[in-house]
Design a protein around this nucleic acid. Structure first.
Lengths: 388, 388
DNA sequence: ACCCTTTTGTAAAGGGCGCAGCGTTATTAA
DNA sequence: TTAATAACGCTGCGCCCTTTACAAAAGGGT
């Protein structure tokens, strides 16, 4: 006997689907009237009204009493999706800082907390800073832990299905850490960990430079070089979560590319390693010969791996992000030329527009995706935090 | 005003969905009783019965009168999905041959036609052979053109959204040809063109070496080297249809890899170029030193691009196909070693099991996908050929 | 030969839902 | 004040699925 293959549609399920339909027609739109919702969903107006009343009773929707905006005729009540019913948190665990953002179900940011952390801090100390950043977000908004519906944490290095970074990570000692386990003590909602490049890619598609594209290669250009891939509108992780880790291949020269900047001949002594790249980019912009050469060599090496990604995936857009994307003006033109030499079809090249917030915003988006899948996926649940 | 976002579910649509549900629960299963279908779909037995009777009346299902297989109780009528209601054709347009396969909606092969074609034939001559191969399939099965529900044609070179191979193609003059336009004169069903590597990848997942995997890199190893990518269970084409064309990147050495075989020192004079590779593989298997070196060098170059694909996509399985996959025994071990050196996580390596039929079978699968999406996608239509 | 068990086939009753239609209500323009 | 407009809200209708019940068709045992 075969297992249950497809789920038949009951008459109750139909109403559930229609309720979901109405919520989806309202989310991301300004407050709407029942007539508008009926038009968008294709349902009849009386039917829509009944469902809307039910959603109001459940707390998903709230009434907005009519303002004077109607032209003629009886002014309609408008309904608004109650984005404040639930909240999510996205965290970026970087080498020098922890950035936590708290937002409602529409993704509207309610609080941001940025705390410094010592690059050499051990995992326990780093997790303590994560806790503190999250705590600040809760305190700032007055929310309780059980009012958080999902949390996503962004870290460097590939993340496997269990939320661990087993393969490697630049953060000291981090491989043995399991952040979901740590956070589960305080939060019972779904908690995910994801690679920072992948999250930044997600953010660029959500609110950044690639809002219009479904096939995106995001290249993180910084002291570490990485990539995040969005294919057919969805973030792709690969079977073991290591998709985009092309930098591990010696031949693509991503590992050594930043050394061109660090070893620039005209670099004055005494500049910190972390500031060297910025100095070289500025010098190149000012016309310094050696700096221009260093940037050219860096870009040439960056282009090797980028070309491999472009030829493999044929994306619509390549987004250049990471710390060096502030100097995209120095990189993009040459990158385009190099790609033009090697690629069959050169995609659009764009610079990231999100800056340092990219990873945290991507974490937010992934947390929202989790909520969407659980709460708005199959049927419409009562408004409450999903359990992990 | 926003456009219609989600489609509300009417009570009629519910029955449509349930009918679809039942068809899906029956397809790919042996003939089933109403009770079994009710169990699989979660619908009630009487309700299921009503829908099944409707599907029989529409011609989607046929009754199988009870045999003596029941153990106890009244023997049940069994129902069977009428796979013969429609048929699809998959065509592989190669340099030396055209292979056409005709199958029913279950993918059961009903006729195969393989016709030789001169490697130097111009596009018109090649299309004539395609027509002839299709004609043989129709004649062999006694089907009329309007009983074909979808056709897919596999060609070498990247295929863009319009079905043209504008970027490049190894077939002489082929860039200016639009096979769908040609076939549309005789067939009004949907006609697609797709790259041969992508189709072969599809076939390996359907009936070949990677039936269990959702993340697959298919590498076609032959006189031309190419790749097809299946990510999260779906064939990915890229924004311009050029996904997987990594071979165009000089640095990955796929273009020149076969030359190691062609230029093998121990190759006797007078051997045809097309047979050279096979000779070298045989010689290597027999212990010939120069041949073993040639194979080793070939595999080393093949591994460069394969590593790039694996690191980019982190697939579960890499399938080695193409003409050289007959000699996978000589290639796979070394390929695994090379990948182990460069990749974070080495996927399973498997040899293709479909041989020369791969591309045509993949074309068949893509045609079936088209039918599934159109006829079994949103609702259940009457059993008739969809229009292009 | 008969009855009992098991499972299928079929008919009738019941309930939920969305739709169409129409009267009611609230507001603006004249 | 009246007409026009558009949203609100109620009632009856039809459809679909479910539950319940009963008849029909086998096999097995007495």
């Amino acid at each position: 006997m075969t297992e249950q293959v497809t789920t038949g549609t009951d008459v109750n399920r139909m109403r559930e689907l229609n309720a979901l339909s109405i919520v989806r027609a309202l989310r991301g739109n300004p407050p709407s009237t029942v007539t508008e919702l009926a038009g968008r969903t294709g349902l009849s107006r009386p039917g829509t009204d009944v469902i809307v009343q039910g959603l109001v009773a459940d707390g998903w929707l709230t009434v907005v009493e009519p303002d004077g905006s109607s032209v003629v005729g009886r002014p309609a009540r408008r309904y608004r999706f109650n984005a404040g019913t639930g909240h999510v948190i996205g965290v970026d665990v970087g080498a020098h800082k922890v950035l936590a953002i708290l937002a409602d179900l529409d993704g509207a940011v309610a609080w941001t907390s940025r705390l410094p952390v010592d690059p050499g801090a051990d995992p326990a100390a780093r997790l303590t800073v994560v806790d503190a950043a999250i705590e600040e977000c809760l305190a700032g908004t007055g929310l309780r832990p059980d009012e958080i519906w999902a949390i996503t944490v962004g870290v460097t290095g590939p993340v496997d299905a269990s939320g661990r970074t087993t393969l490697f990570t630049p953060l000291p000692g981090w491989a043995s850490v399991n952040p979901p386990e740590h956070l589960a003590a305080r939060f019972s909602c779904p908690i995910q960990v994801e690679n920072d490049c992948k999250l930044a890619a997600l953010a660029e598609r959500w609110q950044g430079a690639a809002r219009d594209a479904d096939d995106i290669v995001y290249v993180q250009a910084g002291m570490r070089t990485g990539a995040g891939l969005i294919i057919d509108g969805t973030l792709r992780r690969g079977y073991g979560g290591a998709a985009g880790e092309l930098g591990a291949l010696r031949a693509v020269r991503w590992l050594t590319a930043p050394s061109h900047l660090e070893n620039c001949a005209s670099l004055p002594a005494g500049i910190d390693t972390d500031d060297a790249a910025a100095w070289v980019f500025n010098a190149a912009r000012a016309g310094d010969k050696a700096a221009r050469t260093a940037v050219r060599r860096y870009t040439r090496d960056l282009a090797v791996g980028t070309a491999a990604l472009v030829l493999t995936l044929d994306p619509q857009v390549v987004v250049l992000g990471g710390g060096f994307s502030r100097s995209a003006d120095l990189i993009l033109d040459q990158l385009a030329r190099e790609l033009g030499r090697t690629c069959l079809r050169v995609p659009e090249l764009r610079a990231s527009t999100l800056g340092a917030q990219g990873v945290a915003l991507g974490a937010l988006r992934l947390a929202l995706n989790e909520v969407d899948a659980r709460v708005f996926g199959v049927g419409l649940l009562a408004p409450a935090a999903p359990r992990a």
